[in-house]
Design a protein around this nucleic acid. Structure first.
Lengths: 216, 216
DNA sequence: ACCTGAACACCGTTCAAGT
DNA sequence: ACCTGAACACCGTTCAAGT
């Protein structure tokens, strides 16, 4: 899919998709503050009014970009899911690491997805549903861990909330560039994600100690 | 301190503080997307160019507003600190609850403080230092818990990071309005904050089980 | 059905000029 | 030292008009 309209042609072909791609590109390269509807139209080689044939307003464009971001996040989580990791504990941890890695690999996009540029959606929208779907991966994995007896009894949604909060908090700190000032040595995202999820894990285990996990 | 300039007077008196107050008011009442330098100047009863005698540009105003937000957060944490809760575990948890409560009581401000409106600061700025100071409360409390043997051995900064990530993640979900769709029953912020910190806690304890804490 | 061009109200920022 | 007024380039959005 190409962004710029072929010169000399009047109709674009797939302007809607081109605008979404252009918007994502601007976010990645210059941050969401530089994201302008007119600028996006310019990148697509089209007039300032053209986007209004495909989106109600700028907000709808932003919401759709965020939506695609959450779909990508879900894809990453799905890849982990389908890797078929036999140990549910390791799978759970892999999901957390994947979450943090998504943020570190697409920091601008991650900031945007949870930032104040995109308005809070009501639960019926596809954006809200995509968010819930991402949460679902953690939840399912958590339930599986409970079923096998790896995680102690209790409301799985709360446990999943804890798990989600943790990786989300770390990811947020990372993209805000604050991790280096808070923890002593610089660690690779994988390491720090694993370390944090492991720490949570040792709290979820019914067994007494899991020093091998929580330090490895 | 009054925001609007006394009519008929040429000089404002304390325009700088008035602009900061006006900005905070707009964020609380209409969200950071409606925050406009011209609008803020209007609220202060002053011309569009007047703010430039007190701030380099709009970014500096926003950064200063965020900075004041973190100072308020530090104040809330300091209140908990100085309450002199004897049990370090309870104090630690109280800090987490205070963090979440700050977010739920000032959702727009909290969103703004961590949102993409305020540019990522370099570590030398007072904004970065205020963030570190807030983190310091958790860190000190964590070290105290370790000293007494309540928390197992390990890098206190990582444990504090886990603790911070957790409450920050919950707070983020709350201000994004997603908590109700993720957890079944609607809980008061205090409850959910306590529940989450307790879950983390049972992972930090060296002892085997703390069912009384983690469910109460 | 899709896009353009011009227009409107607004914004951030600058700068000479006023008090 | 602090503030105003007018100006510039820009933005989101609309609407008649073009293909």
């Amino acid at each position: 899919v190409t962004i710029a309209k072929p010169s000399g042609k009047y109709h674009h072909g797939d302007l809607r998709q081109a605008l979404l791609l252009a918007a994502k590109q601007v976010i990645e390269e210059q941050g969401s503050k530089s994201l302008t509807l007119r600028g996006v139209a310019r990148l697509a080689g089209v007039s300032p009014a053209a986007p209004y044939r495909h989106f109600i307003d700028k907000n709808q464009l932003l919401t759709e970009v965020a939506n695609q971001g959450f779909e990508e996040l879900c894809d990453d989580l799905a890849v982990v899911q389908e890797r078929g990791i036999s140990d549910p504990a390791r799978r759970m941890q892999a999901l957390g690491v994947a979450y943090v890695l998504f943020a570190t690999k697409n920091p601008a996009q991650f900031r945007f997805m949870f930032g104040s540029d995109v308005p809070v959606p009501d639960p019926s929208t596809s954006l809200a549903q995509a968010k819930q779907r991402a949460f679902g991966y953690l939840l399912d994995s958590m339930k599986e861990c409970q079923r096998i007896g790896l995680v102690r009894e209790g409301n799985a949604r709360y446990f999943a909330l804890c798990s989600w909060s943790m990786v989300h908090g770390v990811a947020s700190l990372y993209v805000d560039g604050q991790l280096p000032t808070l923890v002593p040595e610089p660690h690779a995202p994988e390491e720090i994600a694993a370390l944090v999820t492991a720490t949570l894990w040792s709290g979820l285990f019914a067994a007494h100690k899991q020093s091998d996990r929580s330090h490895g």
